[in-house]
Design a protein around this nucleic acid. Structure first.
Lengths: 120, 120, 120, 120
DNA sequence: GTGGTCTAGACCACA
DNA sequence: GTGGTCTAGACCACT
């Protein structure tokens, strides 16, 4: 994985894990790889991943069992609400920015549609 | 103006100035307030605004006349291309993020439409 | 039993056993369940319970007969002094904490009384 | 300051800062010493204090201005609710523990009163 | 000078 | 083996 220099590494890893959860690559109840293992995978220091795991637990996405490991929470709605929440934020930010440029509602829809059809 | 702690203040100010240009609140040829004046307005360290003006000049949006002040460039296409460039970036970021959550093209258009119709 | 993630599981089990002794749910001379049995009950690694039993023996609360199991000590004063010791510690900690918040002696008594009368 | 080996240093520092706030030693709006400065005071590594400041901000007790420093929040009710919250937690823990030892309401009040009068 | 992030490496308690 | 904490020291962006 290539890191974007402008965003803290630990945030990028958090995001990539969240996206894996949203897309079902890891499921509720699954054990996450150990900090050390994942640190090797991402080629970063274990401390950085320690922070990732801590933050994920703080956000109630995982839970940690001392000496055992970290697991995706088995709360049935977690995945759904995680997706909804992340989408909501991205959408709100987008709408707010694009409107501040003076785009009307119709223009917004059009510009999105063009972009999607145009491929790029 | 309230600042978002996660984004550098100078960037937030740059953005707000760019948006003012795009929306015609300040026009090509207009003189920008002095650094000191603006620093007082924004309740911010003058060093921060020093950086703002520097960056605006570096991006060819303003030019500086020694002893007189900073002015918006009178290049006719600047405003238009500034808007296009900023919009493009916002759109690309949005599309990339929302797609990573597993949204299909149709879903993206729908979710945007719903959001715009639903109001806030 | 639900474990509090911030306290070692083995300590929480030790405490719950001590409380059972204090409240007479298990009496001097009683045999404790085997480690394996208890590990299943608590859904916990047998190693963890190994440590629990070790610690209880170290504190002179139980004794072990090889091949037979672990038993609550039949020392007549053990239960009483266990209760006194645990209460003392809890009380000291409480007094020290609450005083550090600036509560006066009278306020402490009042706040406790209110809490007890007010129910939960 | 002497640290208790059983509790993480960063938590003990957080607590001591909170207590200073509750007791008015530092007031809303006050600037906290810089991380480096405080690290020297407490004779710990700056990273440890970084964590302290981060956690205080996460708990909405302080806010941070990039490149400027950390400040006690000026929310008028913060101090009061902080005190209330910390007291509540200490009291609940105490009541729960002492009750689990079989103390009745009257016994609890008495034992507290005796302890306070007895001095120790 | 201030906070934020990161690496390197260590030690510890826990399961 | 697993996560949690800590030190030492570095670099960076921001004010």
């Amino acid at each position: 994985m290539k890191f974007d220099n402008k965003i803290p590494i630990y945030m990028q890893i958090i995001n990539s894990i969240k996206i894996d959860i949203i897309n079902g690559k890891v499921k509720p109840g699954d054990k996450l790889p150990s900090i050390r293992e994942m640190a090797v995978n991402y080629k970063v220091n274990p401390n950085t991943l320690q922070r990732v795991y801590q933050e994920l637990e703080r956000e109630d996405i995982t839970y940690t069992q001392r000496g055992t490991g970290s697991f995706i929470k088995e709360d049935g709605n977690m995945v759904k609400s995680l997706k909804k929440e992340m989408a909501r934020e991205v959408i709100e930010n987008f709408i707010q920015s694009i409107k501040s440029f003076g785009f009307s509602d119709d223009e917004i829809v059009n510009v999105i549609r063009e972009r999607l059809e145009g491929g790029e």
